[in-house]
Simulated scan of single mutants.
Amino acid sequence: MDNKYTNNNPPGLSSSDDSLAATGMRAADTLLRLVPMGLCIAALIVMLKNSEANDYGSVAYSDLGAFKFLVHANGICAGYSFLSAAVAAMSPPSTISKAWTLFFLDQLLTYLTLAAGTVSTEVLYLAYNGDTEITWSAACGTFGKFCSKATASVVITFIVVAFYAFISILSSYKLFSRYNAPLPHPNSKQQLQMPVFHG
């Protein structure tokens, strides 16, 4: 008896339609990964050029460890976004190792940029408001331009976090919906070992 659907496609979906859908998914995934790259570069440039000098002194991003961490995190994020977009754009079908790698690295980048944005936000809060308990006065009244640029860089970084949170959800969906959990070997006997106590 002839099989009507020899290509394992569901009714109404031809192999060409399936190929077009896969191409569209790859294009969307590639674009979604390129957008954070541009945002990371923007946040990086804004912070790298962030310095101010006046009659009270001078300040630059390199004077604060949190802002240097933000610069490094955005640089790593931009590089990874470019590489992952190139991988996503490749035509060969996804393998389980590729899916697991993207899933893990997407999660890592999400938490890295979140950590950089969070510590930088804390520094900005102290710069705007000061801390009376340790007699640390607010600095943004004196270095307003510096604080404004730092705020812009941090805001862009949190937009990147939102993008990568969404990318992480998509990569986890693609991983866990496409591949099943590994099954135990049929010859192995999984037995529950119960401790025996002799009275």
Results as ranks from 00 to 15, higher is better:
89 A>V: 01
72 H>Y: 11
21 A>E: 07
136 W>G: 05
180 N>E: 15
101 T>S: 15
116 A>S: 14
18 D>A: 13
53 A>T: 15
14 S>T: 01
106 D>K: 00
80 Y>H: 05
197 F>Y: 13
194 M>R: 15
139 A>W: 10
172 S>T: 08
180 N>D: 15
158 F>Q: 06
64 L>Q: 14
59 V>R: 04
162 A>V: 11
57 G>E: 03
159 I>T: 12
99 A>E: 09
53 A>M: 10
19 S>M: 14
79 G>I: 05
93 P>M: 10
103 F>T: 10
141 G>M: 04
139 A>K: 15
191 Q>F: 11
135 T>Y: 13
90 M>L: 13
94 S>K: 09
4 K>V: 11
89 A>H: 09
87 V>I: 11
8 N>C: 07
100 W>D: 12
190 Q>F: 05
187 N>Q: 09
117 G>A: 03
58 S>N: 08
102 L>V: 10
21 A>L: 06
175 L>S: 01
199 G>C: 07
181 A>P: 05
118 T>H: 12
134 I>F: 08
102 L>H: 07
1 M>G: 14
91 S>M: 10
153 S>P: 04
142 T>A: 02
160 V>R: 09
96 I>Q: 06
147 C>L: 02
79 G>A: 09
104 F>W: 08
197 F>P: 02
47 M>P: 06
163 F>P: 00
122 E>K: 14
94 S>G: 06
166 F>L: 12
155 V>G: 02
10 P>R: 02
71 V>E: 05
95 T>S: 03
140 C>F: 00
170 L>Q: 12
136 W>E: 05
58 S>T: 12
74 N>I: 01
15 S>P: 05
124 L>F: 03
24 G>I: 03
172 S>R: 07
19 S>D: 13
118 T>E: 14
66 A>E: 14
62 S>E: 15
49 K>D: 12
3 N>Q: 10
126 L>M: 13
7 N>P: 00
173 Y>D: 12
12 G>E: 00
22 A>V: 07
178 R>C: 04
86 A>R: 13
169 I>M: 08
77 C>F: 01
35 V>H: 09
108 L>S: 09
192 L>T: 15
64 L>K: 15
172 S>L: 09
32 L>N: 10
9 N>K: 01
54 N>R: 05
95 T>H: 02
64 L>V: 15
124 L>C: 05
127 A>R: 14
43 A>L: 03
192 L>E: 12
53 A>F: 10
